[in-house]
Structures are given as C-alpha cells and as structure tokens.
Design a protein around this nucleic acid. Structure first.
Lengths: 175, 175
DNA sequence: TCTAGTTGCTTCGAATTCGAAGCAGGTCTA
DNA sequence: TAGACCTGCTTCGAATTCGAAGCAACTAGA
C-alpha cells in the first residue's frame, strides 16, 4: 500500500504508471531530437514544422488560424507569433477569410513546400532511427491502434472541461 | 507514390505515419491538460513536477543536477533555472556533492513531498480520465511494452549522436 | 607536479510560450 | 435596427526554454 511517512498516499497501477512514464519520456526524447534535426536542416522549430505540415497536407494548402492552433496544440497567441515568423520568411501567406471578415486564412507557399521537401528526409530518418527502430511493422500498427482512440477521446472531451476541472471536478468520477 | 508537383518526394509508411502523428498529438494534448491541472492544484509546471517526482521516487530523495536534467529531458541551464525556483519555494535543497566538488546534489524537502501529495490525486485523475479511459488494462500493458524498448533505444543512442547527425550522419544507417 | 583537456554547473541573451486584455466583426433577441 | 453577447485574431507582459560562454574542479600524460 502507501502512506508511509514520506509517501503521499496513493495507489497507482504500476502498469499504467509505466505506460504513462514511457509515453512522456519517449516523446520528450523524440521531440528533442526532432528539434535538433529541423533546426539544422531548415532552421525550423517543431511547432513551425507542424504548422507547415498541416498546411501542406490540407487539400487547399490552408487553414483557419484557430483550427490550426487546435490542430498543433498551441495557444492562439502562440500561433499568431509563429505565423508572423513564417510569413516574414515567405513560407506562408495570411489573408482574410472569405466567409468571415474576422477570420484569417493561412496558406502555405511554394517556398514553404520546398522547405518541407528539404527537411522531410532528415526528419523521417530521425523518426525512423529513434522511434521505429525497435518496433516491427506490427508493433507500429498496434501503437497506432492504441493511440488513435486515445486521441479521439482527448479531442472529444473539450480542453475547456479539463481546464475547469476544479469546478465540477471529481464529480465526473464520483457521479 | 509521391512526386506530384507540390509534393515533396518521399514515401512514408502510412502505418508509421499514423503512429507517429498519434503519439505526438496524444502527448501534446495530455501534457497541455496536465500543465493546467498542476498549475491550478499546486502552482507547478510539468517540468517542476517531473523534477519533484524524480527526486521523490529516488531512494535518497536526491540526484545530481546533470543526471536529473537528463532524466527529465531538459537542458542543464533549464534545470538550473527550475532548481532555483524550487529552492526559493523551499521544495528542494541544493548542496555540493560529497565526492565531486563541482557537482551539485539536489534533494527534495518535506515541503516538496507534501506538495506532491496535494497535487498527485488531481494528476492521477487527469491522466486516468484522458489517457487511460479508452484503454483496457491489457492495452495499457501493451502500450508500456511497446514504448519501453523505444525508450531504452533512445537512451542508449546518446543524444549527442543525434545532435551531430549531420556530421557522420546517415553513416549510422549506411554502415 | 605542471599543463592541457574534460566535466559540472551557472550566467547571459535571445527565442518561444502562454494567458489576459483589446479590438473588430458576427449573432441573437426584442 | 439596437443592444448585449460571442468569436477570431492580435498585442502585451511575464515566464520558461535553450545554447554559448564562463568558471571552478577533476583527470591524464609528460
């Protein structure tokens, strides 16, 4: 059990703990390595890379600012800052959204796609070497299958409900 | 297939891509939610929480600065900054290492453990609700089993080799 | 023992992040 | 249409992050 003089009283499933710790650790290490590679190969941060990738993978090459911020999990003000940098570098363009005068549409430029082209090989190399080296194809499939529902679950529960967890709080568990 | 006019030429295994994206996304969302909870419940950032946790879980309640920085995947200067904040708050103590005059040993205090005690229930709640809600116990075990080797692999390949990937670079794969 | 090189930590400046506040543009209701 | 409220984005200040540089202490070789 727990509750020894110095232990905060809690009983955590060691299996869950291991999974949680490993998840955090793996992602921290991976992200750190990726930052290095992106910086060296294209002067990009991971956030800017994710922004470009999301835009590149969009059929229209563009997104609304807010949607993009949610997609890459960054604050709106943070995205504004990054969009400014990317725009100054000529990698994206911002324009007023056609349907909503308040909205801003951010679009990747050819230069942005070209930069991705220069950066992606090294990126794939790092991810391949660090993340997938110890994983079989089946393992990768399993990992994806495990994480997809988690992602959907997290996306479904609006972030706001987590933020305001204190108010209403553990009623979610108690009720 | 790739190489359409606007596509950077690369063929990525969609399974790997899905696993990689889900991993990044899940961890970003989880970390964001955790930051919120820790801030509300104890005025902690995730980094400071990790520092306290590592120290708390250590048999001696202490670590060398460098080892701790590696453990929580943060720069040395970053840890110095956080250690300063934690020390000012009375949650840790820094003292010269006995064996190496240069070294600094950082130790968690009773106040630090007490704060963990106040913060951990909410932390476990958030992690349980967001990460493990869609996962069975078996799933959690599988996830842990998949990620543990990846973590060990990443730890084995010293970060430095990743940093200096450009020099020597893909020889690691070619050789 | 001296000297050169390495290691451990901190300081410094620059970049990035966030949340709060501000502002312009929508939306809803009477 | 007017008024109140909501939304989308940006600006602002504060906090956090990193890498480079600096400094003290250790180690190895002559």
């Amino acid at each position: 059990m727990s509750g020894t003089p110095h232990d905060p009283p809690h009983d955590v499933d060691p299996v869950r703990l291991g999974a949680y710790f490993a998840l955090i650790e793996v992602t921290s290490l991976l992200r750190h390595a990726i930052e290095q590679q992106l910086h060296e190969d294209g002067g990009l941060t991971f956030v800017r890379f994710q922004v470009l990738m999301r835009l590149h993978r969009s059929p229209t090459g563009s997104h609304r600012m807010t949607d993009l911020a949610d997609a890459v999990v960054v604050s709106r003000s943070g995205l504004t800052y990054q969009a400014g940098l990317l725009e100054r570098a000529g990698l994206v363009v911002r324009s007023p959204s056609p349907d909503d005068e308040r909205g801003v549409t951010i679009t990747i430029t050819d230069a942005g796609r070209a930069l991705l082209g220069r950066v992606l090989p090294g990126h794939e190399e790092v991810v391949g070497d660090l993340l997938f080296e110890p994983l079989s194809r089946t393992d990768a499939q399993t990992l994806a299958d495990l994480l997809a529902p988690v992602r959907d679950h997290m996306r479904a529960a609006p972030p706001r409900s987590v933020v305001s967890r204190r108010r209403g709080g553990r009623a979610a568990r108690d009720g």
